[in-house]
Design a binder for these strands. Structure first.
Ligand code: MN
Ligand code: MN
Ligand code: ZN
Ligand code: ZN
Lengths: 134, 134
DNA sequence: AAATAAATGCAACTCTGTGGCATTTAAAAA
DNA sequence: TTTTTAAATGCCACAGAGTTGCATTTATTT
Protein backbone atom coordinates (compact mmCIF):
# COMPACT_ATOMS: atom_id res chain seq x y z
CA UNK A 1 0.00 0.00 0.00
CA UNK A 2 1.45 3.31 -1.00
CA UNK A 3 1.58 6.52 0.94
CA UNK A 4 -1.24 8.00 -1.11
CA UNK A 5 -3.83 5.55 0.22
CA UNK A 6 -3.24 6.54 3.85
CA UNK A 7 -3.73 10.16 2.96
CA UNK A 8 -6.82 9.37 0.97
CA UNK A 9 -8.35 7.52 3.89
CA UNK A 10 -7.64 10.40 6.25
CA UNK A 11 -9.05 12.92 3.83
CA UNK A 12 -12.11 10.80 3.25
CA UNK A 13 -12.73 10.71 6.98
CA UNK A 14 -12.23 14.44 7.32
CA UNK A 15 -9.06 14.12 9.38
CA UNK A 16 -6.04 16.35 8.98
CA UNK A 17 -3.14 14.54 7.35
CA UNK A 18 -0.53 15.07 10.02
CA UNK A 19 2.80 13.32 10.46
CA UNK A 20 1.69 11.39 13.52
CA UNK A 21 -1.55 10.22 11.96
CA UNK A 22 0.04 9.09 8.73
CA UNK A 23 2.70 7.09 10.56
CA UNK A 24 0.14 5.61 12.91
CA UNK A 25 -2.28 4.65 10.16
CA UNK A 26 0.54 3.17 8.14
CA UNK A 27 1.45 1.02 11.11
CA UNK A 28 -2.12 -0.15 11.70
CA UNK A 29 -2.46 -1.21 8.10
CA UNK A 30 0.81 -3.12 8.11
CA UNK A 31 0.13 -5.45 11.02
CA UNK A 32 -2.41 -8.19 11.56
CA UNK A 33 -3.04 -8.20 15.30
CA UNK A 34 -4.32 -5.69 17.82
CA UNK A 35 -1.96 -3.16 19.40
CA UNK A 36 -1.71 -1.76 22.90
CA UNK A 37 -0.64 1.79 23.68
CA UNK A 38 2.81 0.42 24.50
CA UNK A 39 3.03 -1.59 21.29
CA UNK A 40 2.29 1.57 19.37
CA UNK A 41 4.80 3.68 21.26
CA UNK A 42 7.44 1.06 20.55
CA UNK A 43 6.49 0.95 16.89
CA UNK A 44 6.66 4.73 16.63
CA UNK A 45 9.97 4.65 18.51
CA UNK A 46 8.58 6.75 21.34
CA UNK A 47 8.73 9.94 19.39
CA UNK A 48 5.12 10.81 19.91
CA UNK A 49 3.57 12.26 23.05
CA UNK A 50 1.29 10.12 25.18
CA UNK A 51 -1.66 12.50 24.94
CA UNK A 52 -1.22 12.89 21.24
CA UNK A 53 -1.20 9.16 20.71
CA UNK A 54 -4.30 8.61 22.83
CA UNK A 55 -6.03 11.49 21.09
CA UNK A 56 -5.09 10.14 17.68
CA UNK A 57 -6.49 6.76 18.64
CA UNK A 58 -9.70 8.42 19.79
CA UNK A 59 -10.01 10.29 16.48
CA UNK A 60 -9.39 7.15 14.47
CA UNK A 61 -11.91 5.23 16.50
CA UNK A 62 -14.55 7.92 16.13
CA UNK A 63 -13.95 7.97 12.40
CA UNK A 64 -14.37 4.19 12.25
CA UNK A 65 -10.82 3.61 11.07
CA UNK A 66 -9.91 1.47 14.06
CA UNK A 67 -11.76 -0.07 16.99
CA UNK A 68 -10.73 -0.65 20.57
CA UNK A 69 -10.78 -4.04 22.22
CA UNK A 70 -11.03 -5.04 25.84
CA UNK A 71 -9.16 -8.33 26.00
CA UNK A 72 -9.36 -8.57 29.80
CA UNK A 73 -5.65 -7.93 30.16
CA UNK A 74 -6.11 -4.50 31.65
CA UNK A 75 -4.65 -2.85 28.57
CA UNK A 76 -6.92 -1.60 25.82
CA UNK A 77 -5.95 -2.90 22.40
CA UNK A 78 -6.62 -1.22 19.07
CA UNK A 79 -7.11 -2.85 15.70
CA UNK A 80 -7.56 -1.63 12.16
CA UNK A 81 -11.07 -1.76 10.80
CA UNK A 82 -14.64 -1.14 11.74
CA UNK A 83 -15.87 -2.14 15.19
CA UNK A 84 -18.19 -5.09 15.63
CA UNK A 85 -21.63 -3.61 15.10
CA UNK A 86 -25.22 -4.78 15.04
CA UNK A 87 -25.53 -7.40 12.35
CA UNK A 88 -21.80 -7.29 11.76
CA UNK A 89 -20.39 -8.70 14.96
CA UNK A 90 -16.97 -10.21 15.25
CA UNK A 91 -15.30 -11.93 18.15
CA UNK A 92 -11.78 -11.40 19.44
CA UNK A 93 -9.28 -14.15 19.97
CA UNK A 94 -6.65 -13.87 22.70
CA UNK A 95 -3.70 -16.24 22.47
CA UNK A 96 -2.87 -17.57 25.92
CA UNK A 97 0.75 -18.07 24.93
CA UNK A 98 1.88 -15.01 23.03
CA UNK A 99 -0.99 -12.80 24.31
CA UNK A 100 -1.70 -11.47 20.88
CA UNK A 101 -5.21 -10.41 20.02
CA UNK A 102 -6.83 -11.13 16.68
CA UNK A 103 -10.10 -10.04 15.15
CA UNK A 104 -12.10 -13.06 14.05
CA UNK A 105 -14.47 -13.28 11.12
CA UNK A 106 -18.17 -12.64 11.28
CA UNK A 107 -19.69 -14.09 14.41
CA UNK A 108 -22.58 -16.48 13.92
CA UNK A 109 -25.57 -15.21 15.91
CA UNK A 110 -25.26 -16.84 19.30
CA UNK A 111 -28.15 -18.47 21.02
CA UNK A 112 -27.88 -17.53 24.66
CA UNK A 113 -30.81 -18.02 26.92
CA UNK A 114 -31.34 -15.35 29.52
CA UNK A 115 -33.90 -15.25 32.35
CA UNK A 116 -37.40 -13.89 31.77
CA UNK A 117 -37.43 -10.12 31.58
CA UNK A 118 -33.89 -9.77 30.25
CA UNK A 119 -33.47 -8.56 26.69
CA UNK A 120 -30.14 -9.12 24.98
CA UNK A 121 -29.09 -6.53 22.41
CA UNK A 122 -25.58 -7.65 21.66
CA UNK A 123 -23.01 -10.23 22.55
CA UNK A 124 -19.31 -9.60 22.98
CA UNK A 125 -17.30 -12.78 22.82
CA UNK A 126 -13.67 -13.27 23.72
CA UNK A 127 -12.11 -16.53 22.68
CA UNK A 128 -9.07 -17.75 24.58
CA UNK A 129 -6.79 -20.36 23.16
CA UNK A 130 -3.67 -20.82 21.10
CA UNK A 131 -3.03 -18.92 17.90
CA UNK A 132 -1.68 -20.27 14.64
CA UNK A 133 1.79 -18.89 15.35
CA UNK A 134 2.20 -20.68 18.67
CA UNK B 1 -29.13 -16.88 56.34
CA UNK B 2 -27.79 -16.74 59.84
CA UNK B 3 -24.42 -15.58 61.00
CA UNK B 4 -23.27 -19.14 61.58
CA UNK B 5 -23.32 -20.03 57.90
CA UNK B 6 -20.91 -17.25 56.96
CA UNK B 7 -18.49 -18.45 59.57
CA UNK B 8 -18.89 -22.02 58.46
CA UNK B 9 -18.06 -21.09 54.90
CA UNK B 10 -14.96 -19.18 55.94
CA UNK B 11 -13.79 -22.02 58.15
CA UNK B 12 -14.45 -24.54 55.42
CA UNK B 13 -12.26 -22.52 53.08
CA UNK B 14 -9.52 -22.18 55.67
CA UNK B 15 -9.95 -18.44 56.04
CA UNK B 16 -9.75 -16.64 59.38
CA UNK B 17 -13.13 -15.39 60.53
CA UNK B 18 -12.39 -11.71 60.84
CA UNK B 19 -14.80 -8.84 61.22
CA UNK B 20 -14.16 -7.50 57.72
CA UNK B 21 -14.52 -10.86 56.05
CA UNK B 22 -17.73 -11.72 57.82
CA UNK B 23 -19.33 -8.40 56.93
CA UNK B 24 -18.11 -8.65 53.36
CA UNK B 25 -19.31 -12.21 52.90
CA UNK B 26 -22.65 -11.35 54.44
CA UNK B 27 -23.01 -8.56 51.91
CA UNK B 28 -22.11 -10.76 48.96
CA UNK B 29 -24.68 -13.33 49.97
CA UNK B 30 -27.41 -10.74 50.39
CA UNK B 31 -27.31 -9.18 46.92
CA UNK B 32 -28.01 -10.56 43.50
CA UNK B 33 -25.76 -8.57 41.21
CA UNK B 34 -22.04 -8.00 40.87
CA UNK B 35 -20.28 -5.36 42.95
CA UNK B 36 -17.49 -2.94 42.18
CA UNK B 37 -14.89 -1.85 44.70
CA UNK B 38 -16.86 1.36 45.17
CA UNK B 39 -20.14 -0.46 45.65
CA UNK B 40 -18.52 -2.51 48.37
CA UNK B 41 -16.97 0.48 50.10
CA UNK B 42 -20.37 2.15 50.15
CA UNK B 43 -22.01 -0.98 51.49
CA UNK B 44 -19.41 -1.27 54.23
CA UNK B 45 -19.84 2.47 54.91
CA UNK B 46 -16.20 3.17 54.08
CA UNK B 47 -14.96 1.78 57.31
CA UNK B 48 -12.55 -0.64 55.75
CA UNK B 49 -9.20 0.18 54.28
CA UNK B 50 -8.70 0.04 50.53
CA UNK B 51 -5.83 -2.48 50.68
CA UNK B 52 -7.72 -4.63 53.12
CA UNK B 53 -10.77 -4.72 50.92
CA UNK B 54 -8.80 -5.58 47.80
CA UNK B 55 -6.89 -8.22 49.73
CA UNK B 56 -10.08 -9.70 51.10
CA UNK B 57 -11.50 -9.88 47.61
CA UNK B 58 -8.34 -11.63 46.44
CA UNK B 59 -8.62 -14.17 49.28
CA UNK B 60 -12.26 -14.84 48.53
CA UNK B 61 -11.57 -15.25 44.88
CA UNK B 62 -8.69 -17.64 45.47
CA UNK B 63 -10.90 -19.65 47.79
CA UNK B 64 -13.57 -19.83 45.12
CA UNK B 65 -16.11 -17.92 47.21
CA UNK B 66 -16.45 -15.12 44.69
CA UNK B 67 -15.28 -14.47 41.15
CA UNK B 68 -14.21 -11.30 39.43
CA UNK B 69 -15.82 -10.03 36.26
CA UNK B 70 -14.52 -7.74 33.55
CA UNK B 71 -17.65 -6.02 32.25
CA UNK B 72 -15.70 -3.66 29.97
CA UNK B 73 -16.61 -0.69 32.15
CA UNK B 74 -13.08 -0.28 33.44
CA UNK B 75 -14.10 -1.33 36.92
CA UNK B 76 -13.69 -4.91 38.03
CA UNK B 77 -16.87 -6.38 39.46
CA UNK B 78 -17.13 -9.18 42.00
CA UNK B 79 -19.93 -11.67 42.40
CA UNK B 80 -20.73 -14.43 44.86
CA UNK B 81 -20.12 -17.95 43.66
CA UNK B 82 -17.66 -20.03 41.71
CA UNK B 83 -16.06 -18.59 38.60
CA UNK B 84 -17.04 -19.86 35.18
CA UNK B 85 -14.81 -22.88 34.66
CA UNK B 86 -14.25 -25.53 32.02
CA UNK B 87 -17.51 -27.39 31.54
CA UNK B 88 -19.25 -24.96 33.84
CA UNK B 89 -19.16 -21.70 31.94
CA UNK B 90 -21.55 -18.86 32.55
CA UNK B 91 -21.98 -15.59 30.76
CA UNK B 92 -22.36 -12.13 32.27
CA UNK B 93 -25.14 -9.75 31.47
CA UNK B 94 -24.56 -6.00 31.60
CA UNK B 95 -27.64 -3.81 31.67
CA UNK B 96 -27.13 -0.83 29.40
CA UNK B 97 -29.52 1.27 31.48
CA UNK B 98 -28.70 0.66 35.13
CA UNK B 99 -25.22 -0.76 34.42
CA UNK B 100 -25.78 -3.67 36.77
CA UNK B 101 -23.99 -6.91 36.08
CA UNK B 102 -25.65 -10.29 36.51
CA UNK B 103 -24.31 -13.82 36.34
CA UNK B 104 -26.30 -15.85 33.85
CA UNK B 105 -27.04 -19.55 34.02
CA UNK B 106 -24.95 -22.25 32.43
CA UNK B 107 -23.75 -21.24 29.00
CA UNK B 108 -24.52 -23.62 26.18
CA UNK B 109 -21.23 -24.56 24.47
CA UNK B 110 -20.82 -22.01 21.70
CA UNK B 111 -19.87 -22.96 18.21
CA UNK B 112 -17.49 -20.32 16.95
CA UNK B 113 -15.46 -20.95 13.88
CA UNK B 114 -11.89 -19.73 13.99
CA UNK B 115 -9.32 -19.74 11.20
CA UNK B 116 -7.14 -22.79 10.56
CA UNK B 117 -4.42 -23.16 13.15
CA UNK B 118 -6.31 -21.44 15.97
CA UNK B 119 -7.46 -23.60 18.87
CA UNK B 120 -10.14 -22.22 21.17
CA UNK B 121 -9.99 -23.32 24.79
CA UNK B 122 -12.67 -21.16 26.32
CA UNK B 123 -15.20 -18.51 25.48
CA UNK B 124 -16.04 -15.51 27.63
CA UNK B 125 -19.31 -13.93 26.66
CA UNK B 126 -20.69 -10.59 27.78
CA UNK B 127 -24.30 -9.92 26.97
CA UNK B 128 -25.44 -6.31 26.73
CA UNK B 129 -29.07 -5.38 26.94
CA UNK B 130 -31.77 -4.42 29.36
CA UNK B 131 -32.33 -6.17 32.64
CA UNK B 132 -35.63 -7.25 34.16
CA UNK B 133 -35.65 -4.26 36.53
CA UNK B 134 -35.37 -1.65 33.80
C1' DA C 1 1.49 35.21 2.45
C1' DA C 2 -1.79 35.74 6.24
C1' DA C 3 -5.43 34.01 8.92
C1' DT C 4 -7.76 30.22 11.17
C1' DA C 5 -8.69 26.16 13.42
C1' DA C 6 -7.17 21.95 14.71
C1' DA C 7 -3.18 18.93 16.33
C1' DT C 8 0.72 18.57 19.22
C1' DG C 9 3.67 18.55 23.42
C1' DC C 10 4.17 19.25 28.10
C1' DA C 11 2.86 18.95 32.76
C1' DA C 12 -0.19 18.11 36.14
C1' DC C 13 -3.80 15.27 37.45
C1' DT C 14 -7.39 11.30 38.24
C1' DC C 15 -8.41 6.74 39.11
C1' DT C 16 -7.80 1.76 39.92
C1' DG C 17 -5.08 -1.20 42.03
C1' DT C 18 -0.60 -2.91 44.54
C1' DG C 19 3.27 -3.38 48.03
C1' DG C 20 6.04 -2.44 52.35
C1' DC C 21 5.82 -2.31 57.02
C1' DA C 22 4.30 -1.59 61.74
C1' DT C 23 0.31 -2.84 64.58
C1' DT C 24 -3.64 -5.55 65.74
C1' DT C 25 -6.32 -9.69 66.07
C1' DA C 26 -7.77 -14.63 65.46
C1' DA C 27 -6.42 -19.05 66.35
C1' DA C 28 -3.25 -22.43 68.40
C1' DA C 29 -0.32 -23.85 72.15
C1' DA C 30 0.80 -23.92 76.73
C1' DT D 1 -6.99 -18.51 80.90
C1' DT D 2 -2.79 -16.75 79.49
C1' DT D 3 0.90 -16.80 76.14
C1' DT D 4 2.64 -17.45 71.56
C1' DT D 5 2.32 -17.16 66.51
C1' DA D 6 0.98 -16.27 62.16
C1' DA D 7 -2.02 -14.02 59.47
C1' DA D 8 -5.07 -9.78 58.73
C1' DT D 9 -5.45 -4.93 59.02
C1' DG D 10 -4.45 0.02 58.36
C1' DC D 11 -1.64 3.52 56.75
C1' DC D 12 1.12 5.36 53.35
C1' DA D 13 3.58 5.61 49.35
C1' DC D 14 3.68 4.09 44.83
C1' DA D 15 2.74 2.19 39.86
C1' DG D 16 0.36 2.31 35.50
C1' DA D 17 -3.32 3.64 32.25
C1' DG D 18 -5.53 7.23 30.66
C1' DT D 19 -7.30 12.37 30.70
C1' DT D 20 -7.25 17.49 30.75
C1' DG D 21 -5.73 22.48 30.48
C1' DC D 22 -3.01 25.37 28.09
C1' DA D 23 0.62 27.35 25.28
C1' DT D 24 2.83 26.35 20.84
C1' DT D 25 3.06 24.42 16.32
C1' DT D 26 1.24 22.86 11.95
C1' DA D 27 -2.14 21.81 8.22
C1' DT D 28 -5.47 23.86 5.65
C1' DT D 29 -8.31 27.89 4.00
C1' DT D 30 -8.62 32.51 2.32
MN1 MN E 1 -11.80 -6.58 16.15
MN1 MN F 1 -20.53 -14.63 37.21
ZN1 ZN G 1 0.05 -16.97 20.04
ZN1 ZN H 1 -31.03 -2.60 34.47
Amino acid sequence: MKEESYKQLLEQKGLKKTKVRITLLQHFMSIEHAQSYNDLQAALVNEVDKSTLYRSLASFEQAGIIHSINDHSGLTKYAFGQPPSQGNEHAHFVCEQCKMVYCMGKLAPLQLNVPKGFKTNKVQAILKGVCSDC
